[in-house]
Simulated assay, not measured.
Amino acid sequence: MEKFLLSALVTGAIFTNAQAQIATGTTMMGGNLNYWGPTSKNDNNQAGYSSTTKNKQFEISPIVGRFIAENLAIGIDARFSFSKTNSHYPIFSSNYTFAGEYYEQIQKGRSINVGPIIRYYKFVSEKAAFYGQFSGGYTNNYISSYTSAFSNEGIYTPSTSGSTRSEGFYGQVSPGFVFFPINKLGLELYLPGLSYNRLIDKTDDSKRVDASLGANFGLRYLQMGAFFYLGRS
């Protein structure tokens, strides 16, 4: 009985406070800033080798939008992403024994996405709301790689390099949650959600079309952002 009453009170409070709105004509400005930099290492002390991979990725996503109806906004999203991966791993001989040499590979990338967004808010209290966002548009990516081999004594062998370019379009549906400490400032948590990409990949000597569908709902994909809501009273 106590649990029922508590649940009823919470539900009643939510519906009582769910009168907050974002009026037509409000302008939102802000975006998301993210950094990702994990390192993985695999040691094999018995064989006397180890492999290491270091990843760094920085992403900034400014968004400007305007509410064309109550709680409904349209706008422009421009996303810029820069990454670097440094891999260090052993070379094995034909019989799978350690050959005494290592590969070192450095891979750098950049990605640009630009396109319109549509966002709709559903308030659950005076200061909190869930939203759903659809975005889509043009994407352009570039990846370059440099690989070299060296022995335990530090002797390098000739290196190789290559690059890949791709461009096309993307579509994404993302869920999010926003908290308003004051009416004109929203602090957000959101997930990338469902995404679709159709790209034309161009390497130094080939070309192909690649289409992919992704679903990123795990907590490790959780990102943060902040927006100003100009004109909101």
Results as ranks from 00 to 15, higher is better:
G65N: 05
K54L: 05
R66G: 13
V64K: 06
T53L: 12
E70M: 08
P38H: 12
N34F: 02
K56A: 03
K54V: 00
I68C: 02
N42K: 00
W36D: 15
I63W: 00
Y49I: 10
S40C: 01
E70D: 09
K54W: 00
L33H: 04
K56L: 10
S51Y: 04
I68H: 02
F67G: 05
K56N: 12
S50R: 02
E70S: 11
A69E: 08
N55G: 00
S61A: 11
N55R: 00
A47C: 01
A47P: 04
N71I: 07
K54Q: 12
S61G: 05
Q46L: 12
K56S: 10
L72F: 13
N45D: 15
E70A: 08
L33Q: 03
S50L: 07
G31Y: 10
N32T: 15
T39Y: 07
N45G: 14
G30M: 01
V64H: 04
N32H: 14
L72D: 01
S50K: 03
Y35C: 03
N34C: 07
I60F: 15
K41I: 06
Q46T: 15
P38L: 03
N42D: 09
Y49G: 13
Q46H: 13
I63G: 09
I68S: 08
Y35F: 15
I68A: 05
